[in-house]
């Protein structure tokens, strides 16, 4: 088992290198730093000096991959590729266009993001799994058919409408909670409850339908027939036999996103004015702050890879066939 985890960890290294190469390609090769500088400075202020200054401020004034002018090993190391990659791996993301330190900013914004993401995740999982179990318990009845239609209808509505509609109804018409904003401490509750509820409701359709399919697939297996032949009640069969087996595919989809919860939600945070990483990313996209976007891409991939690792570990918890091999 330890060897298994070590092997998984080793797999992660080439993937991270690959991600780093892709971001490098995207941000430095597709458009040269000169192009970007020209665009960012705006047509009026473009002078060769201004471009050089812009590049120097950001450390973009080196050759891309090969520094023929440098001595020895520095030929390969004194380049944008090497410099930027090494800094990334050391979690040194440099400064944003507004001059603030990106790493610092990320650290301070993680809290609010998690404050929405974690309750959403837990509540959402609980609600969708229960709903799917309900549908499966009443399979082949009108309740099941109605539930599935409801799921399909729910997943046909854009997430934007859930947010806009929820904000409008709850905050504007009923005046129950503030429409947007954020504060630390206990006060945060009144700002968080609406976004959490909205994203749980918005996610029910697709996931409940998916879980229902998984449960139905399990329920047609031979061992379920065995369990019924033992005289167990339908609920017992559902919870002890079906749910436990269906957890394996469910985990694949669920555990991998846990680390990504740190990244927050782009839409919710920007609509509700919550100062998390999601709104940070959106703002960076809006203001074309490439350093921030690049950092977020890198962090996202690291978290995803951590998620893959967690998924593999969680398999060993629920599936004895993996644990004992």
């Amino acid at each position: 088992m330890i060897a298994y985890i070590i092997r998984r960890l080793l797999y992660a290294i080439p993937i991270l290198i690959g991600v780093n190469l892709i971001t490098f390609l995207l941000f430095f090769v597709v458009n040269s730093p000169d192009d970007i500088a020209r665009m960012q400075l705006g047509a009026k202020r473009v002078t060769p000096e201004a471009i050089e200054k812009w590049k120097a401020e950001r450390g973009y004034d080196k050759p891309l991959v090969w520094n023929a002018a440098a001595p020895g090993v520095a030929k390969a190391t004194d380049t944008i590729l090497f410099d930027k990659s090494v800094r990334m791996f050391a979690l040194d993301f440099g400064r944003a266009d507004d001059g603030r330190d990106i790493a610092l900013e990320i650290r301070s914004r993680m809290g609010p993001s998690l404050a929405i993401a974690i309750p959403t995740f837990i509540l959402g999982l609980f609600v969708t799994v229960s709903f799917a179990l309900l549908l499966v318990f009443f399979r082949n009845t009108a309740l099941d058919v109605g539930g599935v239609v409801l799921c399909v209808a729910a997943m046909s509505i854009s997430g934007l409408f859930y947010i806009i509609g929820g904000q409008y109804l709850v905050s504007k018409v009923w005046n129950l909670v503030p429409i947007s904003g954020y504060s630390g401490g206990l006060d945060a509750g009144k700002f968080l409850i609406l976004p959490v509820l909205i994203s749980v409701v918005g996610g029910i359709g697709a996931s409940a339908r998916w879980y229902r399919t998984l449960f139905l697939e399990e329920i047609n297996k031979d061992y379920v027939r065995t369990a019924r032949a033992k005289g167990l009640s339908e609920l017992h069969v559902l919870f002890r036999h079906v749910l436990k087996n269906a957890m394996i595919p469910i985990l694949t989809g669920v555990v991998v996103v846990i680390p990504l919860l740190f990244m927050g939600s782009l839409l919710l945070e920007s609509f509700f004015g919550i100062p998390g990483l999601g709104s940070y990313t959106i703002d960076a996209i809006g203001s074309q702050d490439f350093a921030v976007v690049r950092s977020m891409v890198f962090i996202g991939s690291v978290l995803y890879i951590v998620g893959l690792l967690l998924t593999d570990i969680s398999y060993t918890l629920v599936d004895p066939r993996v644990r004992l091999k």
């Binding site: 597709v30 782009l266 990313t281 891409v297 991939s301």
Partner: peptide, 17 residues
């Protein structure tokens, strides 16, 4: 590798470029 970059961010990066 492609999968490990969160979808929206990858799209955002590409669209910006």
């Amino acid at each position: 590798v492609l999968n490990s970059i969160p979808g929206v961010l990858l799209i955002a990066a590409m669209v910006l470029m």
